[in-house]
């Protein structure tokens, strides 16, 4: 039993080390791709970012709406319903925007990346590139990774803005909070530091979600079952990593 635990631990360390090396390799190829082949990255920003916009906006609207409802019903007990704007804004900018966007991003774009790369591997497309003396790292992995890293903070920003609109819709338009108070309270409560925290979180989550998706796809066992498992693992591991990292970043920034 201890022996098994020991081997699991060693295996975990080994995988974690390999993941870090893989990350460094991605980073080392990134400048070349950014400078010389930015078109590939733009294409992936479209795939990972633009195509995720609808789901992000719909979810943002409803999350904002819920914040408006919950904020109103709880704050009105203290006659503080005017603060619903501040509550929604802080919640969205610092926590819900980055976290939920990252979870949705991993579900929508991360799985697409992992299964695409896994299938490319299973159908020998990556080997074919290798044989054409074209590095799959540069041509396939790095652009997808960078596409995700660029998309994530932008999507989180869109999520937050639409969320605020949702909170406004519910709080002001439906429940009758004064619009001036809604925005004024928000303006007073939100500091630049809160926005930076949100930006840092969404950037870190973008790196983690894209890295894990690309990693899982690239290391998928090249069979139908293997690609399926890689896709599932992408979502599960990304979700866990993001929630742990969220806690850590919050703890540091407070």
């Amino acid at each position: 039993m201890f022996r098994e635990l020991y081997y699991t631990f060693v295996e975990f360390l080994r995988t974690f080390g390999a993941l870090q090396l893989f990350f460094l390799r991605l980073l080392s190829h990134s400048p070349y791709i950014i400078v010389r082949r930015f078109g590939l990255v733009v294409h992936q920003v479209h795939n990972a970012g633009a195509l995720s916009l609808v789901i992000i906006m719909v979810c943002g609207l409803f999350v904002g709406g819920v914040l408006g409802l919950q904020g109103y019903s709880n704050l009105s007990k203290f006659n503080a319903e005017d603060a619903v704007g501040a509550v929604a804004a802080l919640g969205l900018i610092k926590e819900l925007g980055p976290v939920i966007t990252a979870l949705l991003f991993s579900g929508r774009a991360g799985t697409a990346l992992a299964s695409e790369i896994g299938l490319m591997k299973a159908t020998d497309q990556l080997s074919a590139m290798e044989m054409m003396a074209i590095s799959p790292m540069q041509r396939v992995l790095v652009p997808r990774f960078l596409g995700g890293v660029i998309s994530m903070p932008l999507l989180a920003a869109v999520f937050t803005v639409v969320g605020l609109f949702g909170a406004h819709l519910v709080g002001v338009t439906l429940l009758g909070v004064d619009a001036g108070a809604f925005w004024a309270q928000m303006q007073n409560a939100v500091e630049p530091g809160d926005v930076y925290e949100g930006i840092i979180k969404s950037t870190v989550f973008g790196v983690v979600a894209s890295l894990l998706a690309v990693w899982e796809g690239y290391n998928a066992i090249p069979t139908a079952e293997g690609v399926g498992r890689a896709t599932t693992r992408t979502v599960v591991i990304t979700a866990i990593s993001i929630l742990i990292l969220d806690f850590m970043i919050t703890a540091i920034s407070i």
């Binding site: 159908t123 020998d124 074919a128 290798e130 044989m131 054409m132 003396a133 590095s135």
Partner: peptide, 19 residues
């Protein structure tokens, strides 16, 4: 290695076309 591989053309079992 990459320069060496340029001398090869390889046809994979299922074609391995980029989908």
């Amino acid at each position: 290695l990459y320069r060496f591989r340029r001398r090869f053309g390889m046809l994979f079992q299922n074609g391995a076309l980029l989908t």
